[in-house]
Design a protein around this nucleic acid. Structure first.
Length: 487
RNA sequence: GGCGACGUGGCCAAGUGGUAAGGCAGGGGUCUGCAAAACCCUUAUCGCGGGUUCGAUUCCCGCCGUCGCCUCCA
């Protein structure tokens, strides 16, 4: 069983072979912390979260690095974005980025996205960036003009190899005013001179300024993962110019191959309010939904389900309709896992139901096979859904099921659905300590209702059920008793 | 205009050179005091036109359509 990954460099599925057996160095482009994260970020980082979780599940020792961009970049108007925000809020720029960085982590935590091993900040790696720029200057790949340093793309023979853009194809100045300072329209800034009004600025050999957008990823990935590492990830919308420029400057500065496998994830789309066509969720279009706002409406697992409902390279739509479908699908999955846990409390210590272990083995094998094939999460979820049908049938049959069988089912749900996909919450997350009293009260009411039912006092029984329903507590009568859940 | 991705049942979405997973929704049924939940049954020849092939949804060409990138964006 070998892992295969679709490598954007070369555009084909390839067998994954790490540089060092059993270990993986992985870098994923992180967010610019200038505002609250939205669902587009959620899609990308949930995708990589599951990829990293699965790699670890497969036994790899993964070092996962994801940068925090906090140095600010230029708008078309020439204003610094973070500076602009700082003026609005009358606050120091570093306080702004600190704030949004913390909120970013809070949002990701809420989504069940495990934190990267290292979250290096661009502002904390200015010397490394300057050093890399100097190397590029020495090697003749860059030139300085008036305190700005640009990379000369004509000095790299393979510029454009990731995005398949060749320099001669570009329409110079088509949508961007050609700066006279640049030798070629595709040349990009490594270092920018800070105008007097810029607060975010650092000393450099070329005067006070700030780093260009792409150099931070090159400098920080090199620092923590080395000149050559296994996997580089990001959103596909950054393939050009960001990823392309990262590659060219890193390979020219390091004289070494950069990332060996490029994994780029598809975009989150949202229906256009006018005609309903799906369009990219983005800050500039103003059609974004903050993660924290979406979490008011849907559980994190349901948001994850949506992100994982397509293969990671494909785009996915976020809409009420889609989310309701995800919600229903998730509830069936989780309902079965929860029922298994509930049955464990009363199950006999027999080995009845052991024949089911075969189904579990089959599910596990299927799950691994499809995840090994470029992380096919839709198929992996399908495997769990098929398992769920079997589990429900088993639980609804009149045969008694032994504890060991239930435990085996539960373990599989927790491993594949919980540990890898993050869709099934851990058992201990179900009933917090403060809800024990509430649970006791609900169970008391269930006892009263059971008494009423035994006396065929259905009016009273239904009244209790309806009142609880109104409070969001749903009762389900099963042959062996009534169970409840919070809606 | 250039580069790239995609177009599969009512909706979403896998997938394969030999007639197509899974989910959601709808309809019918079983179970239930009634519900709820669950389970069973039920709907597709894969954008259009050519070509390659014994055979294509899957490979190639063209067309149409949608999205992304080419400017800060995950």
């Amino acid at each position: 069983m070998t892992l295969r990954i679709y490598n954007f460099l070369g555009r084909e599925k390839q067998e994954f072979v790490p540089l060092e057996e059993g270990r993986i160095g992985m870098y994923v482009c992180g967010p610019t912390v200038q505002d609250y994260a939205h669902l587009g970020h959620a899609k990308t980082y949930i995708s990589f979260d599951v990829i990293v979780r699965y790699l670890r599940f497969s036994g790899y020792d993964v070092l996962y690095v994801q940068n925090i961009t906090d140095v600010g970049h230029l708008l078309e108007t020439g204003e610094d974005r973070i500076l602009k925000k700082a003026q609005q809020l009358q606050a120091k720029p570093m306080a702004i980025v600190e704030h949004y960085m913390r909120e970013y982590f809070a949002d990701m935590d809420a989504l069940g996205v495990r934190r990267p091993d290292i979250s290096p900040r661009a502002s904390a790696h200015i010397p490394e960036q300057i050093e890399m720029i100097q190397r590029l200057l020495e090697e003749g790949h860059a030139y300085e003009v008036n305190g700005n340093v640009y990379f000369d793309v004509t000095t790299a023979h393979d510029y454009g190899k990731l995005s398949n853009r060749r320099i001669e194809q570009q329409q110079a100045g088509a949508r961007e005013a050609v700066r006279d300072e640049k030798r070629n329209p595709e040349d990009f800034a490594l270092w920018k001179r800070a105008e007097p009004e810029h607060i975010l600025r650092w000393n450099s050999p070329w005067g006070e300024g700030f780093p260009g957008w792409h150099i931070e990823c090159s400098a920080m990935s090199r620092k923590y993962l080395g000149p050559t590492f296994d996997i580089h990830g990001g959103g596909i919308d950054n393939i050009y110019p960001h990823n392309e420029n990262e590659i060219v400057q890193s390979e020219c500065a390091n004289h070494a191959e950069f990332a060996r496998y490029w994994m780029l994830v598809g975009t989150l789309l949202v229906p256009d309010p006018i005609d309903g066509t799906p369009v990219k969720m983005s800050k500039s279009l103003g059609n974004f939904i903050r993660i924290r706002d979406a979490l008011q409406q849907y559980r994190p697992e349901v948001l994850r389900m949506n992100a994982l409902s397509v293969q990671y390279r494909n785009p996915v739509v976020y809409s009420d309709e889609a989310m309701q479908s995800m919600q229903a699908g998730w509830e069936r999955l989780y309902g079965a896992a929860r029922l298994v846990r509930q049955q464990m409390n009363t199950a006999p210590e027999t080995d009845d139901g052991n024949a089911f272990l075969e189904v579990l083995d089959k599910t596990r094998a299927e799950f691994i096979e499809v995840m090994d094939d470029d992380f096919n999460t839709p198929k992996a979820i399908a495997a769990l859904q098929e398992l769920t049908r079997e589990v429900n049938s088993l639980l609804n049959s009149d045969q008694t099921i032994g504890l060991s069988t239930l435990q085996a089912i539960n373990t599989l749900y927790e491993e594949l659905g919980g540990e890898v996909l993050g869709l099934i919450p851990a058992a201990e997350a179900e009933a917090g300590g403060d809800s024990r009293r509430e649970a006791g009260l609900i169970e008391l009411l269930i006892e009263l209702r059971a008494k009423a039912r035994a006396e065929k006092n259905y009016a009273e029984a239904d009244r209790i059920r309806d009142r609880l329903q109104a409070l969001g507590v749903v009762l389900e009568d099963r042959p062996d008793g009534t169970i409840w859940r919070v809606q």
